[in-house]
Amino acid sequence: MDKLIDKALAGDTRAIARIISLIENGDPVSDAVMRRIYPLTGRAVVIGITGSPGAGKSTLTDKVIESFRKQGKTVGIIAIDPSSPFSGGAILADRIRMQRHTGDDGVYIRSMGTRGSLGGLSRGTREAVLLLDACGKDVIVIETVGVGQSEVDIIKLADTVCVVLVPGMGDDIQIMKAGIMEIADVFAINKADKPGVDRVAAEVRLMLDLVKNRPWTPPVHLTIAENGDGVDEFAESILKHHDFIKNSPEGAKVEYRRLSSEVEDILLKNLSRRTEKIWKNHMSEELMKELAARETNPYLVAADILKKIFPHG
Protein backbone atom coordinates (compact mmCIF):
# COMPACT_ATOMS: atom_id res chain seq x y z
CA MET A 1 0.00 0.00 0.00
CA ASP A 2 2.77 2.41 0.94
CA LYS A 3 4.36 1.81 -2.42
CA LEU A 4 1.11 2.67 -4.18
CA ILE A 5 0.84 5.89 -2.18
CA ASP A 6 4.44 6.78 -3.01
CA LYS A 7 3.73 6.28 -6.68
CA ALA A 8 0.62 8.41 -6.45
CA LEU A 9 2.47 11.20 -4.67
CA ALA A 10 5.08 11.04 -7.41
CA GLY A 11 2.29 11.75 -9.87
CA ASP A 12 1.61 8.30 -11.32
CA THR A 13 -1.84 8.49 -12.90
CA ARG A 14 -2.78 4.90 -12.45
CA ALA A 15 -1.75 4.88 -8.79
CA ILE A 16 -3.85 7.96 -8.09
CA ALA A 17 -6.75 6.40 -9.92
CA ARG A 18 -6.39 3.12 -8.04
CA ILE A 19 -6.36 4.81 -4.64
CA ILE A 20 -9.48 6.78 -5.48
CA SER A 21 -11.18 3.49 -6.34
CA LEU A 22 -10.12 1.96 -3.04
CA ILE A 23 -11.55 4.91 -1.16
CA GLU A 24 -14.69 4.97 -3.24
CA ASN A 25 -15.22 1.28 -2.58
CA GLY A 26 -14.90 1.85 1.15
CA ASP A 27 -11.81 -0.32 1.35
CA PRO A 28 -10.57 -0.68 4.94
CA VAL A 29 -7.19 0.79 4.00
CA SER A 30 -8.78 4.17 3.22
CA ASP A 31 -8.35 5.69 6.67
CA ALA A 32 -4.69 4.78 6.77
CA VAL A 33 -4.17 6.31 3.36
CA MET A 34 -5.86 9.51 4.42
CA ARG A 35 -3.85 9.75 7.61
CA ARG A 36 -0.69 9.44 5.61
CA ILE A 37 -1.48 12.01 2.95
CA TYR A 38 -3.37 14.53 5.05
CA PRO A 39 -0.28 16.52 6.12
CA LEU A 40 0.40 17.20 2.43
CA THR A 41 -3.00 18.75 1.81
CA GLY A 42 -4.32 22.27 2.11
CA ARG A 43 -2.45 23.78 -0.77
CA ALA A 44 -4.88 23.44 -3.65
CA VAL A 45 -7.61 25.81 -4.68
CA VAL A 46 -10.76 23.72 -4.41
CA ILE A 47 -13.65 24.81 -6.58
CA GLY A 48 -17.17 23.48 -6.79
CA ILE A 49 -19.23 23.97 -9.92
CA THR A 50 -22.93 23.38 -9.56
CA GLY A 51 -26.09 24.20 -11.47
CA SER A 52 -28.96 22.49 -13.18
CA PRO A 53 -28.67 20.03 -16.06
CA GLY A 54 -28.20 21.69 -19.41
CA ALA A 55 -26.58 24.73 -17.83
CA GLY A 56 -23.32 23.83 -19.52
CA LYS A 57 -21.34 22.91 -16.40
CA SER A 58 -19.05 20.49 -18.18
CA THR A 59 -18.33 22.83 -21.06
CA LEU A 60 -17.62 25.62 -18.60
CA THR A 61 -15.37 23.32 -16.59
CA ASP A 62 -13.55 22.47 -19.81
CA LYS A 63 -12.88 26.14 -20.46
CA VAL A 64 -11.94 26.81 -16.84
CA ILE A 65 -9.34 24.05 -17.11
CA GLU A 66 -7.97 25.77 -20.20
CA SER A 67 -7.83 29.09 -18.39
CA PHE A 68 -5.88 27.67 -15.46
CA ARG A 69 -3.59 25.69 -17.72
CA LYS A 70 -2.68 28.90 -19.52
CA GLN A 71 -1.44 30.16 -16.17
CA GLY A 72 0.66 27.02 -15.77
CA LYS A 73 -1.47 25.56 -12.99
CA THR A 74 -2.10 21.84 -12.81
CA VAL A 75 -5.73 20.82 -12.52
CA GLY A 76 -7.65 17.86 -11.12
CA ILE A 77 -11.30 17.34 -11.89
CA ILE A 78 -13.87 15.23 -10.09
CA ALA A 79 -16.96 14.96 -12.27
CA ILE A 80 -19.98 13.44 -10.61
CA ASP A 81 -22.94 11.82 -12.33
CA PRO A 82 -25.93 10.13 -10.75
CA SER A 83 -25.91 6.39 -10.12
CA SER A 84 -29.01 4.46 -11.04
CA PRO A 85 -31.06 3.81 -7.91
CA PHE A 86 -32.22 0.55 -9.47
CA SER A 87 -29.06 -1.13 -10.66
CA GLY A 88 -26.41 0.87 -8.81
CA GLY A 89 -24.69 1.33 -12.14
CA ALA A 90 -24.04 4.67 -13.79
CA ILE A 91 -23.19 6.24 -17.09
CA LEU A 92 -20.48 8.79 -16.46
CA ALA A 93 -20.34 11.07 -19.44
CA ASP A 94 -19.22 14.46 -18.14
CA ARG A 95 -15.71 14.04 -19.36
CA ILE A 96 -16.82 14.01 -23.00
CA ARG A 97 -16.65 17.77 -22.98
CA MET A 98 -13.20 17.79 -21.40
CA GLN A 99 -11.65 15.00 -23.45
CA ARG A 100 -9.33 17.35 -25.31
CA HIS A 101 -7.38 17.73 -22.05
CA THR A 102 -6.87 13.98 -21.81
CA GLY A 103 -3.24 13.55 -22.68
CA ASP A 104 -2.20 16.79 -21.02
CA ASP A 105 0.01 15.65 -18.11
CA GLY A 106 -1.14 18.61 -16.06
CA VAL A 107 -4.77 17.53 -16.05
CA TYR A 108 -6.33 14.59 -14.25
CA ILE A 109 -10.02 13.86 -14.73
CA ARG A 110 -11.96 11.36 -12.67
CA SER A 111 -15.62 10.50 -13.08
CA MET A 112 -17.57 9.28 -10.08
CA GLY A 113 -21.08 7.93 -9.62
CA THR A 114 -23.11 9.12 -6.63
CA ARG A 115 -23.55 5.54 -5.41
CA GLY A 116 -26.55 6.42 -3.34
CA SER A 117 -25.23 9.54 -1.67
CA LEU A 118 -27.43 12.60 -1.75
CA GLY A 119 -26.52 16.26 -1.81
CA GLY A 120 -24.87 16.34 -5.21
CA LEU A 121 -21.63 14.58 -4.39
CA SER A 122 -20.43 10.99 -4.42
CA ARG A 123 -19.03 8.76 -1.74
CA GLY A 124 -15.36 9.43 -1.52
CA THR A 125 -15.42 12.83 -3.17
CA ARG A 126 -13.84 14.47 -0.14
CA GLU A 127 -11.04 11.93 0.01
CA ALA A 128 -10.46 12.11 -3.72
CA VAL A 129 -10.08 15.88 -3.44
CA LEU A 130 -7.62 15.51 -0.58
CA LEU A 131 -5.63 12.98 -2.53
CA LEU A 132 -5.38 15.20 -5.61
CA ASP A 133 -4.39 18.05 -3.30
CA ALA A 134 -1.66 15.95 -1.73
CA CYS A 135 -0.47 14.87 -5.17
CA GLY A 136 0.20 18.48 -5.98
CA LYS A 137 -2.68 19.58 -8.18
CA ASP A 138 -2.88 23.37 -7.95
CA VAL A 139 -6.56 23.60 -8.69
CA ILE A 140 -9.24 21.00 -8.07
CA VAL A 141 -12.63 21.33 -9.68
CA ILE A 142 -15.61 19.36 -8.43
CA GLU A 143 -18.48 19.25 -10.88
CA THR A 144 -21.60 18.25 -8.97
CA VAL A 145 -24.37 16.02 -10.25
CA GLY A 146 -26.60 18.90 -11.23
CA VAL A 147 -29.96 17.24 -11.05
CA GLY A 148 -31.60 20.43 -9.91
CA GLN A 149 -32.09 19.08 -6.42
CA SER A 150 -30.53 20.58 -3.37
CA GLU A 151 -26.82 20.24 -3.87
CA VAL A 152 -25.54 21.96 -0.81
CA ASP A 153 -22.93 19.44 0.32
CA ILE A 154 -20.46 21.13 -1.97
CA ILE A 155 -19.84 23.89 0.61
CA LYS A 156 -18.36 21.28 2.92
CA LEU A 157 -15.64 20.60 0.35
CA ALA A 158 -15.02 23.58 -1.85
CA ASP A 159 -13.29 26.85 -0.97
CA THR A 160 -15.23 28.50 -3.72
CA VAL A 161 -18.65 27.47 -4.93
CA CYS A 162 -19.66 28.54 -8.42
CA VAL A 163 -23.28 28.40 -9.44
CA VAL A 164 -24.01 28.19 -13.16
CA LEU A 165 -27.33 29.52 -14.38
CA VAL A 166 -28.63 29.78 -17.88
CA PRO A 167 -31.30 31.96 -19.44
CA GLY A 168 -34.49 30.58 -20.81
CA MET A 169 -34.42 27.19 -19.17
CA GLY A 170 -37.10 28.24 -16.72
CA ASP A 171 -35.21 26.60 -13.90
CA ASP A 172 -33.66 29.66 -12.32
CA ILE A 173 -36.58 29.89 -9.95
CA GLN A 174 -36.16 26.24 -9.05
CA ILE A 175 -32.58 26.85 -8.11
CA MET A 176 -33.48 29.78 -5.95
CA LYS A 177 -36.04 27.67 -4.17
CA ALA A 178 -33.58 24.87 -3.68
CA GLY A 179 -31.29 27.08 -1.65
CA ILE A 180 -28.48 26.97 -4.15
CA MET A 181 -28.34 30.76 -4.33
CA GLU A 182 -27.18 31.04 -0.74
CA ILE A 183 -24.11 28.89 -1.25
CA ALA A 184 -22.72 30.70 -4.27
CA ASP A 185 -19.45 32.60 -4.09
CA VAL A 186 -19.28 33.28 -7.82
CA PHE A 187 -22.05 33.19 -10.41
CA ALA A 188 -21.79 32.35 -14.08
CA ILE A 189 -24.75 33.10 -16.29
CA ASN A 190 -23.80 30.80 -19.12
CA LYS A 191 -25.02 30.74 -22.72
CA ALA A 192 -25.04 34.50 -22.47
CA ASP A 193 -25.72 34.84 -26.19
CA LYS A 194 -29.29 33.64 -25.55
CA PRO A 195 -32.24 35.90 -25.07
CA GLY A 196 -33.21 36.49 -21.46
CA VAL A 197 -29.68 36.70 -20.15
CA ASP A 198 -30.15 40.22 -18.81
CA ARG A 199 -33.27 39.22 -16.95
CA VAL A 200 -31.54 36.32 -15.19
CA ALA A 201 -28.54 38.48 -14.31
CA ALA A 202 -30.80 41.20 -12.94
CA GLU A 203 -32.73 38.70 -10.86
CA VAL A 204 -29.57 37.30 -9.37
CA ARG A 205 -28.23 40.76 -8.53
CA LEU A 206 -31.55 41.67 -6.97
CA MET A 207 -31.41 38.62 -4.73
CA LEU A 208 -27.85 39.45 -3.75
CA ASP A 209 -28.83 43.00 -2.87
CA LEU A 210 -31.27 41.69 -0.29
CA VAL A 211 -28.39 40.89 2.00
CA LYS A 212 -26.58 44.04 3.10
CA ASN A 213 -23.03 44.33 4.40
CA ARG A 214 -21.60 41.14 3.05
CA PRO A 215 -17.90 40.74 3.48
CA TRP A 216 -17.85 39.16 0.01
CA THR A 217 -20.37 39.99 -2.65
CA PRO A 218 -20.56 37.19 -5.20
CA PRO A 219 -19.66 38.57 -8.62
CA VAL A 220 -21.98 37.71 -11.51
CA HIS A 221 -20.24 36.75 -14.76
CA LEU A 222 -21.75 36.36 -18.19
CA THR A 223 -20.11 33.49 -20.02
CA ILE A 224 -20.44 31.66 -23.31
CA ALA A 225 -18.64 28.45 -22.47
CA GLU A 226 -18.97 27.18 -26.02
CA ASN A 227 -16.48 29.72 -27.33
CA GLY A 228 -14.82 30.67 -24.07
CA ASP A 229 -16.22 34.19 -23.77
CA GLY A 230 -16.02 35.54 -20.24
CA VAL A 231 -14.31 32.44 -18.86
CA ASP A 232 -10.96 34.03 -18.04
CA GLU A 233 -12.70 36.70 -15.98
CA PHE A 234 -14.79 34.04 -14.30
CA ALA A 235 -11.64 32.10 -13.39
CA GLU A 236 -10.06 35.27 -12.08
CA SER A 237 -12.99 35.84 -9.73
CA ILE A 238 -12.57 32.32 -8.43
CA LEU A 239 -8.95 33.02 -7.53
CA LYS A 240 -9.92 36.33 -5.99
CA HIS A 241 -12.46 34.63 -3.81
CA HIS A 242 -9.89 32.06 -2.84
CA ASP A 243 -7.54 34.86 -1.76
CA PHE A 244 -10.34 36.39 0.23
CA ILE A 245 -11.02 33.09 2.01
CA LYS A 246 -7.38 32.59 2.87
CA ASN A 247 -6.81 36.13 4.13
CA SER A 248 -9.85 37.19 6.06
CA PRO A 249 -11.52 36.39 9.36
CA GLU A 250 -14.58 35.19 7.44
CA GLY A 251 -12.29 32.84 5.60
CA ALA A 252 -10.99 31.37 8.81
CA LYS A 253 -14.56 30.81 9.95
CA VAL A 254 -15.33 28.96 6.74
CA GLU A 255 -12.20 26.87 7.18
CA TYR A 256 -13.11 25.97 10.77
CA ARG A 257 -16.63 25.09 9.76
CA ARG A 258 -15.34 22.84 7.07
CA LEU A 259 -12.78 21.09 9.24
CA SER A 260 -15.42 20.60 11.89
CA SER A 261 -17.77 18.99 9.42
CA GLU A 262 -14.91 16.86 8.22
CA VAL A 263 -14.31 15.45 11.67
CA GLU A 264 -18.02 15.01 12.15
CA ASP A 265 -18.36 13.14 8.88
CA ILE A 266 -15.47 10.83 9.64
CA LEU A 267 -16.94 10.13 13.07
CA LEU A 268 -20.33 9.45 11.56
CA LYS A 269 -18.93 7.15 8.94
CA ASN A 270 -17.02 5.14 11.49
CA LEU A 271 -19.87 5.06 13.92
CA SER A 272 -22.30 3.93 11.31
CA ARG A 273 -19.98 1.18 10.23
CA ARG A 274 -19.66 0.09 13.84
CA THR A 275 -23.34 0.44 14.52
CA GLU A 276 -24.03 -1.87 11.66
CA LYS A 277 -21.71 -4.46 13.16
CA ILE A 278 -23.12 -4.11 16.66
CA TRP A 279 -26.65 -4.42 15.46
CA LYS A 280 -25.80 -7.49 13.45
CA ASN A 281 -24.33 -9.11 16.57
CA HIS A 282 -27.24 -8.11 18.69
CA MET A 283 -29.95 -9.17 16.28
CA SER A 284 -31.53 -12.57 16.77
CA GLU A 285 -34.45 -14.48 15.38
CA GLU A 286 -36.03 -14.28 18.81
CA LEU A 287 -35.65 -10.53 19.08
CA MET A 288 -37.14 -10.05 15.63
CA LYS A 289 -40.12 -12.16 16.65
CA GLU A 290 -40.61 -10.07 19.79
CA LEU A 291 -40.41 -6.91 17.71
CA ALA A 292 -42.90 -8.21 15.23
CA ALA A 293 -45.29 -9.23 18.00
CA ARG A 294 -44.98 -5.74 19.45
CA GLU A 295 -43.70 -7.25 22.71
CA THR A 296 -40.86 -4.77 22.54
CA ASN A 297 -40.16 -1.88 20.16
CA PRO A 298 -37.29 -0.48 18.14
CA TYR A 299 -36.87 2.48 20.50
CA LEU A 300 -36.35 0.27 23.53
CA VAL A 301 -33.98 -2.00 21.65
CA ALA A 302 -31.92 0.93 20.43
CA ALA A 303 -31.77 2.49 23.86
CA ASP A 304 -30.59 -0.84 25.26
CA ILE A 305 -27.78 -1.10 22.75
CA LEU A 306 -26.74 2.51 23.24
CA LYS A 307 -26.51 1.96 26.97
CA LYS A 308 -24.10 -0.87 26.33
CA ILE A 309 -21.90 1.20 24.01
CA PHE A 310 -21.97 4.35 26.09
CA PRO A 311 -22.43 3.09 29.67
CA HIS A 312 -21.88 6.60 30.99
CA GLY A 313 -24.50 8.16 28.74
Binding site: S83, S84, F86, S87, G88, G89, A90, I91, L92, A93, R95, I96, Q99, S111, G113
Partner: peptide, 11 residues
Protein backbone atom coordinates in the same frame (compact mmCIF):
# COMPACT_ATOMS: atom_id res chain seq x y z
CA UNK B 1 -25.21 0.31 -16.42
CA UNK B 2 -28.36 -1.71 -15.92
CA UNK B 3 -26.15 -4.58 -14.89
CA UNK B 4 -24.74 -2.38 -12.11
CA UNK B 5 -21.50 -1.27 -13.73
CA UNK B 6 -20.06 2.21 -13.91
CA UNK B 7 -19.63 3.12 -17.54
CA UNK B 8 -17.37 5.96 -18.53
CA UNK B 9 -18.63 7.03 -21.92
CA UNK B 10 -16.12 8.99 -23.99
CA UNK B 11 -18.21 9.98 -26.97
Amino acid sequence: RDAGMEVIYTG
